[in-house]
Each structure stands twice: as structure tokens, then as C-alpha cells.
């Protein structure tokens, strides 16, 4: 108990904690980007999905990775990209666990206000099905375009690449259209 109080009071002192969250964690992501570019290369996430799928299926059906031209190009191995994505998952889990632990006395939990779809009462099953479809499309689209929010927008604009700019405009354009057409206006949290 005393330990937890100490950690909380410690972390709330100083300039760092006075800055708004988006600035702190946005700057932190920028530093991670520089670290990545100095050590291996710009950050990217979506390549890891087909690499991982290829790796697993090649274990189950030997020769699968050799037969698919896409996997011959990107490789079906557990490399830097897949480890980065695995780390991403671990880092998020760590951050979530720490904030749960620190806020336990306040009774805070991570809660998600459901996103409402026009004309429906949004049940759990429907939300999960929609997230699945969304996931399917965002990886398919990202692989077709050659990158996702991380590879094209974050890393692309960091390198002033026009491909990132074109991707960002297309993605936000269609995303905003779908959100306006099919979803209710979000309420204040």
C-alpha cells in the first residue's frame, strides 16, 4: 500500500507529468521511431501479420511458404517485424497492468464505451463480428498499399514520403465517410 502511494507521488512530480498525455506519449513514440531507425529500420506493423500466418501454416503444411509468391517476397519467418509486434503486445499489456495496479484503490478500470451503429442496439456478438471484419479489411488494405498507420503514416511522413501522404488521405477519407454513414455520432465520454 505504502509502496503504491510512493510510486504514484513520485511519478506525479516533475515537468514530465505536467505535459498533456498526447504530447508525452506522442514524443515517446517519436523517440521509439528514432531508436528503430538507428538500430534496424523504420517502424512497421502490418507485414508481421502475413509473415506470422505464413510461418504457422508452413509448419502445418510444409512447403506452403515456398508455394506463395507473396511469402517468397516478404519471408515467412519470425524476424524483427514479428518480434516488434509481439513486443508491442507485451508493452501494451505491461502498461495496462501497471495502470490497473496503480489505480486499484481508485477503482478505475479500462472501460470501452460501445460505438453505436445506426438503427441497431449494439450487442456484444455484433461488436466482435464488426471488429473481426474491420481487422480483415485493415490488414488486406494495408498489405495492398504496402503499409499501415505505422509503416505508411508514422514512418512514411517521418521520411517525408509521398506514398505515406497519399495513403493517409485515402484512409482518413474513406474512414470518415464510413463513420458518418453507418455510425451514430459519438457522445462525450
Amino acid at each position: 500500500m505504502a509502496m503504491r502511494e510512493l510510486i504514484r507521488s513520485r511519478t506525479e512530480i516533475g515537468l514530465w507529468s505536467q505535459l498533456p498525455g498526447w504530447l508525452r506519449w506522442g514524443a515517446m513514440i517519436g523517440l521509439v521511431q528514432i531508436f528503430a531507425m538507428v538500430t534496424v529500420g523504420p517502424l512497421g506493423v502490418s507485414t508481421a501479420y502475413p509473415q506470422f500466418v505464413g510461418f504457422v501454416l508452413d509448419r502445418i503444411f510444409p512447403g506452403f511458404a515456398q508455394d506463395q509468391s507473396y511469402l517468397r517476397e516478404i519471408g515467412a519467418q519470425i524476424g524483427w517485424e514479428v518480434m516488434l509486434v509481439f513486443g508491442l503486445f507485451l508493452g501494451a499489456m505491461l502498461a495496462a497492468a501497471l495502470s490497473r495496479w496503480r489505480n486499484r484503490s481508485l477503482g478505475l478500470q479500462i472501460s470501452v464505451a460501445p460505438v453505436a451503429v445506426k438503427g441497431f442496439t449494439d450487442g456484444k456478438l455484433r461488436r466482435y463480428a464488426r471488429a473481426f471484419l474491420g481487422g480483415f479489411l485493415f490488414i488486406f488494405g494495408a498489405r495492398l498499399a504496402g503499409g499501415c498507420t505505422t509503416g505508411h503514416i508514422l514512418s512514411g511522413l517521418t521520411q517525408m514520403a509521398l506514398s505515406g501522404l497519399v495513403f493517409a488521405v485515402a484512409a482518413f477519407g474513406s474512414g470518415m465517410l464510413i463513420a458518418k454513414l453507418f455510425f451514430r455520432e459519438p457522445t462525450k465520454e
Binding site: L88, G134, T149
Partner: peptide, 26 residues
Amino acid sequence: VGGLIFGIGIALGGYCPGTALVGLGS
């Protein structure tokens, strides 16, 4: 075309390829 499909995906899913893993981890 990939960007347009991607935009539909993030609007439906509420995540992008990276943040979906953040949601999973949380």
C-alpha cells in the same frame, strides 16, 4: 485502393493493425 479499404477497416474495427494488439494486450 489499399488506403480506401484500410480506412473502411479502421472505421469498422476501431483499431489499426498496431492498436488492435494494444487492445488485445489491454
